[in-house]
Amino acid sequence: MIQYIIKRFFMMILTVLLIATLTFFLMHSIPGSPFDEDRTSNPTIQENLEKYYKLDQPLPVQYVNYLKAIVTFDFGPSIKKPNESVNNLLARGFPISFELGIVTILVAVLSGVTLGTLAALRHNGIIDYLAMTFAVVGISVPNFILATLFIQVFAGQLGWLPAATWQSPLHMILPTLALATGPMAIIARLTRSSMLEVMTQDYIKMARAKGLKPSRIIIRHALRNAMMPIVTIMGTMLAGILTGTFVIERIFAIPGMGKYFVESISNRDYPVIMGSTVFYSTFLIFMLFLVDIVYGILDPRIKLHKKEGESS
């Protein structure tokens, strides 16, 4: 297990380094300097600007500086908003995006698992049918479409909920639902199919034979084992939710990190792009790493090698 964690850890560092390098060279492969658009005809100003952002140095030196910036986590000032450092932007935007993400995951997992379990228990019944129809629809409608439709209907025509910003729990409902529906649908489908499989296993029959309450069988025995596939897709789901926050924050005018990221892309604000890309990918890759470890802890077959003959 320790060996596995160490191996995964080095993999993680390598991936972060790769994406950081990729970002750096991509940004520097764009012809011209970021200040071209300012139309500063005065070459001295341009030179001073480049000196300030250390863009006058040779590329390898810049690369080393950049790696240093990553390790010390200091990405310097933004180009378009010179009074603001990238760190400031991240510190201001990230908590909001994080809140949105966490609430989304909670909503998606809780309702997805409930829906999937109900569908599996009423296999081929009306609840199963409705839940799976909802799941296929939920997977098919892109989150940004859902978000705009929600605004049009619930904020516009019905006027029940606020259409934008991030102030009260009431403001959180629409963005969270728009972002959570897709993952919820995926989780519901997965939970259903793995619950159907688990419920036919001998140890469930055993639990029944012992006379355990159905609720206890489902929660303690079935669901616990049926959760494994969901842990597996947690990583890709997190990535989906994270990129989802870009559009959702834009649509609902939420001042999170995704908004700054998208802005920095259209402004070509390189320090912000590089800073947030590295931050995002490190965060995501670290989450994948955690998911892997959790999976290893949850699934005894990974730890015990071939000792237990349950499935191999």
Partner: peptide
């Protein structure tokens, strides 16, 4: 391990 859409956005 690379975040797929992030790479696409960068490109």
């Amino acid at each position: 391990g690379l975040p797929h859409l992030l790479v696409v956005i960068l490109l």
